[in-house]
Write a protein that binds this DNA or RNA. Structure first.
Length: 548
RNA sequence: GCCCUCGUAGCUCAGGGGAUAGAGCACAGGUUUCCUAAACCUGGUGUCGCAGGUUCGAAUCCUGCCGGGGGCACCA
């Protein structure tokens, strides 16, 4: 990558300047950034400012320029402002980027991650209800982050953890049981904290149809357990199908019940006990999370002998580490933030490096309809199924919208507005640019112009062409940066800028003309832009249509 | 009360130490014998919540305060 080359040149100049006594002490890390202002060159560095340490940075900057080794790629280097070094690169550099973007399907991908194994766990909703719009954000974000990490050279495992053993599932089972028994004229009270959505009765009806009344006569415990399993076995495939329809697939579906049945849960608690990190109190077992900065110690085994969700979390992280991951990413709902301290405490207590466990909170999606805010609650039955949203606004628009904002900020999804604004949505703007390029390429093909990726690009001198080429060049930095920051919204931003730059080019520069060399060069630029748009949209899980 | 998070244009937001802080929407007007008008052009607004601090330099990092949201269970 170009910055590596520039960093080498700069490091050489720094060493020489140090030998000449112009800079002293530790040499600053060579670092480049893209200046906002074009007059400030293609790449700029502030090392002179850093090296000055309170002194005057400009003489240092000038000394560094004098000591820079020559390079074919660097046209000139200016000292500007307080002491920036502004690198103006030779056109060859830009032409090489465009050539690669046009011909290399892996343009933008890198090996920054060095093949490190990362586990990304997201959505992980209880199998107690269908996929909702709220979970759609998790799905879109987790999927995009996974794709970004892959593009940045990590080996990613996407994982879905479903709680088929916890208290919520039993509550769900009791809710289903109510409807099931009612079906056969047995009236029992609906649980206070039960699930009220219409799908609960539907599942009960399906069970009633498949199993008739054979469950009615069973002892209460056995019947409820059977219903729990049957209901979960209906919900999980439904969730999986919704996610697949949304374009999200997982490598691993991990059952919480497995952690109980395999003995891993008991084993993990035992491990903490050997370390002296759990204590029996009032008949319950507490993990001493206060030793790791938590507010209070937390129960892992209740006084009735049942393990908490937290206990399963502990066993689960042990299992993940056992599977050899270098790094674990958890995408949790913001409402789980109170559990992070105890969780990371347990990670540390188990002897793992807590820096290898990264919990990211995804802020809530507030739903509104016609300007009126609706709080979605699974148990209250106020659900907006993801499938409904996809039907209304389209999969691409839904995914894209989820990825326009940082995960740290609540997302207000107005369903009415999303429907109305569908044609105005920026996703269409980006897709349209892609479709338009395809149209140009079709036309060029009809008129007998072949695309030659090796075409000389020296004739691309218009300002709009220059701007577009530079935008394409920045993609190589944007992708790994977005991956490191877990920030897919950087990609959506980039795509909108790229589409805008292409539109300006389209306005100013006619592609298909009588001038052979110019036409050939512009066709290469078109192909490069098309590829990068398709690649960027691909990172978001959004399609790049050839016609619109 | 304690913890986390957010506060940037009328609205929704981007901006992870740099030079003159940006986009979309909304609003007003204009552009089509021309490779897709789902497009383009023109018009303009910011005490970057407030106050300190660190730094050559702060919307960005630190501290405090104010305001919105979330969390503080033997729920998840």
């Amino acid at each position: 990558m170009i910055t590596d080359h520039l960093a080498e040149l700069l490091a050489s100049a720094l060493t020489a300047a140090s030998a000449d006594g112009i800079v002293s002490g530790d040499l600053p890390e060579p670092f480049f950034e893209r200046p906002r202002n074009r007059q400030h060159g293609d790449w700029a560095t502030n090392v002179a400012l850093q090296a000055a340490k309170g002194g005057n940075p400009r003489p240092i900057a000038e000394a560094l320029v004098e000591r820079l080794p020559p390079s074919d790629l660097v046209e000139r280097v200016d000292v500007a402002g307080p002491g920036f070094l502004n690198f103006h690169l030779a056109p060859v550099w830009l032409h090489d980027v465009v050539f690669r973007a046009a011909s290399d399907p892996d343009y933008g991908r890198s090996d920054r991650g060095g093949g490190k194994k990362i586990n990304v766990e997201y959505v992980s909703a209880n199998p107690t209800g269908p996929m909702t719009v709220v979970l759609g954000r998790h799905a879109a974000v987790g999927d995009a982050i996974s794709r970004l990490l892959e593009a940045a050279g990590y080996a990613v495992t996407r994982e879905y953890y479903f709680n088929d053993a916890g208290r919520q599932v039993w509550t769900f089972a009791r809710s289903v049981q109510h409807h099931y028994l009612k079906h056969f004229g047995v009236d029992i009270e609906f649980p206070d904290d039960g699930y009220r959505g219409g799908y609960v009765a539907e599942i009960a009806a399906a069970i009633a149809e498949e199993h008739r009344d054979v469950l009615v006569a069973l002892p209460d415990d056995e019947r409820l357990d059977r219903i729990r399993v049957l209901a979960a076995n209906k919900m999980i495939p439904a969730i999986r199908e919704s996610l697949e329809a949304f374009g999200t697939t997982f490598d691993v579906w991990f059952s919480e019940a497995r952690l109980h049945e395999s003995g891993e849960l008991a084993e993990s608690i035992e491990r903490l006990r050997r370390e002296g990190l759990v204590e029996d109190r009032d008949g319950a077992v507490f993990f001493l999370s206060t030793r790791f900065g938590d507010d209070k110690d937390r129960v892992v085994i209740r006084s009735d002998g049942t393990p908490t969700y937290f206990a399963a979390d502990i066993a689960y992280v042990v299992d993940k580490f056992r599977r050899g991951f270098d790094h674990l990413i958890y995408l949790w709902g913001a409402d789980h933030h109170g559990t992070i301290a105890r969780f990371l405490g347990a990670v540390e207590g188990l002897g793992h490096d807590r820096d290898r466990v990264e919990v990211r909170l995804v802020q809530i999606v507030t739903l509104s309809s016609g300007g009126k805010t609706v709080r979605a609650s699974k148990r209250a039955g106020l659900l907006v199924p993801l499938e409904e949203l996809v039907q209304e606004v389209g999969r691409d628009a839904a995914r894209y919208t989820f990825l326009t904002r940082s995960i740290d900020v609540p997302l207000d999804f107005d369903i009415e507005l999303a429907k109305e604004q569908a044609p105005e949505n920026p996703v269409y703007y980006v897709q349209y640019a892609h479709a338009r390029i395809c149209s140009i390429l079709r036309k060029a093909d009809e008129e007998g112009h072949s695309v030659d990726a090796h075409a000389a690009l020296v004739s691309l001198t218009h300002e709009s062409e220059d701007t577009l080429m530079r935008k394409l060049a920045s993609y190589e930095e944007i992708v790994p940066d977005s991956a490191e920051m877990r920030a897919p919204q950087r990609i959506t931003r980039f795509l909108e800028e790229l589409a805008a730059d292409f539109s300006a080019f389209y306005r100013d520069c006619r592609v298909i003309t009588d001038e052979q060399a110019l036409t050939k060069a512009r066709l290469v630029l078109c192909v490069a832009t098309k590829n990068v748009i398709a690649s960027g949209l691909g990172l978001l899980g959004v399609t790049a249509p050839e016609r619109m």
